[in-house]
Design a protein around this nucleic acid. Structure first.
Lengths: 352, 352
DNA sequence: CTGAAAGCGCTTACAG
DNA sequence: CTGAAAGCGCTTACAG
């Protein structure tokens, strides 16, 4: 292996000088810099990142964590098509953004003894953590909030001494979705959000209430349903609510996510209901599948690129500020959402 | 940070002894071992993995590489739903299997200057590489074949001085698919495989030929089509072949993958053809989507778990044998495939 | 601007 | 069975 020692010898300087040149210190003469550069090229030298990590007490590695409350799930294993599909889209951007910043992405194999979660990260000298946390009560999330490791959460509204979060403006998104329906003449609007103990579901529900309130419409708690995040549970929940509400006394459904909306559509079709002729449906997220549903889904777009860019850039600022955070550094990042109108919503019809 | 020094002090021994105890050396007295164990627990000690990596010249990290010939793609970004969907399923298992072996999974941000690909891996002291390579001519694949880094390829039939591969028995799979159709009475069978420069497409085509040959049926080169791996291209290719072959002179299609089969189904439906009434269709892979297509897809199952288990276990054996490979260590691993009969295949009908 | 020296936290011959 | 010492490949005060 080529070491800095050999570079130093070839360039006729000491290892210290090679190190300085490499790290862009101004205290290196132009000539020395030049000779070192030549030596590096001719030897094909590249610094040993492990040695650097040890002496700097920090690697150029960002750990990725996904926390659903289920302790045993690994990062990728918990991203299934019908449940956390949105996060899969997100991860693509994560990898690219981290690579662009010249950091490596690490999926650590930390034993489910989350007791030592932080220590395990420290022993790997990770520079920071990107945590996708739907379940803020997870032990590891709580540990991360206490720890000194720079952390950015996505979708867990948690701030700690070295951590902050980025999230879409979920409430405003749900507000837009609902308002869109109200403008189309809908008055009796069902909402189906995740009743999972995370924070996203309730926030989206709040947006729904807000829109009704602004429009001066009554809020009927009876029209507010919950189910799991996945397609199947949303499908089942919709079948149940269709059963309950005979004759049908609503004309639209605001779903908590696109994948849930797909379950909603399936249930409606199965009951012979036409979308949007009989019932309008709005999703949330704007995943790629929305274009391919029958009919294509009106939804609220979360700006993935902005979320990920915001998260990674902030994370790297935190890392490179060496624990000296000013206030702006820990301020949450809220990304605007946007209504995307496709074919699953239309004017209210019928008796309701 | 708690170091081995502190453990040593508390246990009244030297750091050397702590290290031996930790690494299961037999040369430690029972008492010493006990006191050290207590000290470790009471201090909550965990060894510094970076320091270990430096002195051992090897980390407990396995790098993941995906090589499609497109130099710029990152691991996750290139796994899109309609193209390399199968690999996404695979990655879930990869993460779990690697974690089970107590290794970390690394997605390195190596600059696209693949010139230094190997060196970059070395500077990170990765223990080994899992490489999913559809494009064996990729520079990085070639470099990996020359290198000393233990590597297991998936789907690239490449063996090197420190590398081997695991693959499904693709030829036999395609043979089973075709034979299944022949048994149903089909005589004129189209095959649509990827013409991409990888090795998988041609091998599957060979299985198709083999089945025809065994059945004593003529091989009509005209019935052998190619397209990209993704749904859209397979869809387009099918539209084209349907156009060409008027009146229709075939009763079945063997697709190169399930996602391609989905494109085939779409094109057939669009032409008003019924599956399997008019045309039977077989996929390849058995991804989860197969259950949800209309009709559910008959396909060839690749045993993902077996592939990944085989790959990771072999990789770890290679790593832990410290470069002393016996022959069995570099032998390719071939995983049997299996026909899964669903509703997209049926008896041949009509004139052909 | 530069080098000698100490040190990051471990492991491993070597000697006892 | 155990410890003192050297060393993995870097970086960084310190002194000049």
């Amino acid at each position: 292996m080529v070491t800095s020692e050999q570079v130093a010898r070839l360039a006729g300087v000491s290892r210290a000088t090679v190190s300085r040149a490499l790290n862009g210190s101004p205290r290196v003469s132009a000539e020395a810099r030049k000779r070192i550069q030549e030596a590096i090229v001719s030897l094909g030298y590249e610094p040993d990142m492990v040695a650097q990590s040890l002496v700097r007490q920090r690697s150029r590695t960002i750990a990725l964590g996904l926390f659903y409350g289920d302790q045993k799930s690994t990062v990728l294993s918990s991203i299934s098509k019908t449940q956390h599909y949105f996060y899969l889209d997100l991860l693509r951007d994560v990898e690219q953004e981290i690579a662009a910043a010249q950091y490596d992405l690490l999926l650590p194999s930390i034993s489910h003894a989350q007791k030592n979660y932080i220590r395990s990260l420290q022993m790997r000298h990770v520079a920071g953590t990107l945590a996708i946390a739907m379940h803020p009560a997870d032990e590891r999330v709580k540990a991360l909030l206490e720890a000194e490791i720079p952390t950015v959460f996505i979708d867990s509204l948690s701030q700690g001494r070295s951590s902050t979060y980025v999230t879409s403006d979920n409430q405003d998104g749900a507000r837009q979705a609902t308002e869109h329906l109200i403008q189309l003449g809908h008055r009796r609007i069902v909402t189906l959000v995740s009743g999972f103990s995370g924070q996203i579901g309730p926030v989206r529900q709040a947006g729904y209430r807000q829109a009704l309130q602004r429009a001066g419409l009554p809020i009927d708690e009876d029209l507010m349903y919950t189910s799991g995040w996945n397609t199947e549970e949303a499908y089942q929940a919709t079948l149940r609510l269709l059963q309950e509400r005979q004759p049908r006394d609503f004309t639209a459904i605001v779903a908590g996510s696109d994948l849930m909306a797909i379950g909603v559509l399936r249930a409606l079709h199965q009951h012979g209901l036409h979308v949007p002729g009989d019932v309008s449906v709005v999703g949330f997220d704007d995943v790629d599948l929305c274009r391919y549903t029958e009919p294509p889904l009106t939804t609220i777009r979360q700006d993935r690129s902005a979320m990920v860019q915001g998260a990674i850039q902030r994370l790297i600022r935190m890392i490179e500020s060496d624990g000296e955070y000013d206030e702006s550094m820990l301020a949450p990042i809220i990304i605007p959402t946007q209504l995307i109108t496709r074919a699953s919503t239309g004017p209210a019809t019928g008796s309701c």
